[in-house]
Design a protein around this nucleic acid. Sequence first.
DNA 1: TTCCGAATAT
DNA 2: AATATTCGGA
Length: 482
Amino acid sequence: MMDLCGFSSPRSDCFPAGLRVLVVDDDPTWLKILEKMLKKCNYEVTTCNLAREALDLLRERKDRFDIVISDVNMPDMDGFKLLEQVGLEMDLPVIMMSVDGETRRVMKGVQHGACDYLLKPIRMKELRNIWQHVLRKRIHEVRDIEVEEIYTMRNVTEQQSDDGKKKRKDTSANKNDDSSSSKKSRVVWTVDLHQKFVKAVNQIGLDKVGPKKVLDLMGVTWLTRENVASHLQKYRLYLSRLQMENELKATLGGIKSSNIYSKDHSSTNVCLQNPLSQTSITMQQKIVTNESYKNLNQKDDSKICEENMNGIISGPTKTKKALLGDVKDPMKSNTSRLSFGHSLPKIEVQSWQEEKSHFQADKPRVASIEPSYGNTKSQGIERVTKVESTAALFSVQPQLTYRHAFEHNLFGDVAGPSYRLWEDELNCFPSQGFSDPPYADYGYHGSQELIADVPYHSLNFDSDYTSDSLEYPVIDQGLFIA
DNA sequence: TTCCGAATAT
DNA sequence: AATATTCGGA
């Protein structure tokens, strides 16, 4: 087992004690109460009644705190915003809290990366254990590094930073660290990241995009232009493919039936079903790429998107929030559903040991899964550091990928699905299944697993999660769909 | 020189 | 499949 004291946790000597907690709440009363309670836990407490202030504090010295506890409702800045910023900039575990336990909000919190969500009134017993999140994160970090080491053992030489180019400044937060020597971790384009990307692209305009501009706009320090370029390339491919499908559909007789690519694997084939489109598209792809890309440009793509979305999403396409809306739109295309009707595949938790050996064997870093959907040869879910591949369910299957993008989410490594904050889309959640989500009342309180032998375990969670056929929303990851 | 993007490599 | 790297050309 790991030597828990091994990782350079600041003050690892007496670990849980002295945990540096930043509490953010606009209500001074709560602030006081929390402070008191936290101090009773032997934590080192800093309070703050303004989110912005908190952010400043955090930015000032990002290594000054171990964990943040923040209220959700605050006048100066939405708690979620804060959460997001923190996740982005320093990657500290953040616990959210609020009085209401409204499912949506909790979910939103979790989706935004909260590692826990506490309901007020908060009691001691809920605070006593918050250090686990810090620990969990550390474990993850260590593991990530090990994994990377193993994974990239070979390409050691690497580019020596020859001249004084602007080197990425790398927030130690982002495990992008290339410390020690030789690791160039691959960028994982999480939904989150991709969102930023698309947002930037849209802002610039398809006609004027370039990796550089996008990179700048995205403001993700550790990304490189190459990263973006690569992604952009793929994105363009995606767009043109998208457009071609559109054209095809149009050609084939304006049947704008939404269900064309419906998931019914075996069902009576709809006249437009894939075989044709598939092939012809692939065949043409190369040729058309450029052209169509340009066309796409000229057509107002929001239109296109609308077309695509018609019927897939219930209700009219919302145009509010243009940016974000547009962002996801293209991805919405007929290639996916908003929700799908299978229960979440089962995740079998592996122990650290097992997993590790997996890596060493250079075996697929994939948890055992039980895909419940059709034809897929997909692996369904990954719960490990890198996402190697997403199921190639182009036409039909939505995918759930569990990415480490959610490192610090509530469930530790068995993260939530990687759908992400499509702000307005929470509507799309199949409400029935969620009346009693695991998030709300599940807690880590009292869980000992961390210090036990199976750090990555999510005991109860698992059963909770899988037992019922909760349906999960699928956010199209367009791009991630091959 | 820096940036692009297609092609190609991993 | 997803991302990185290369390389000829603006």
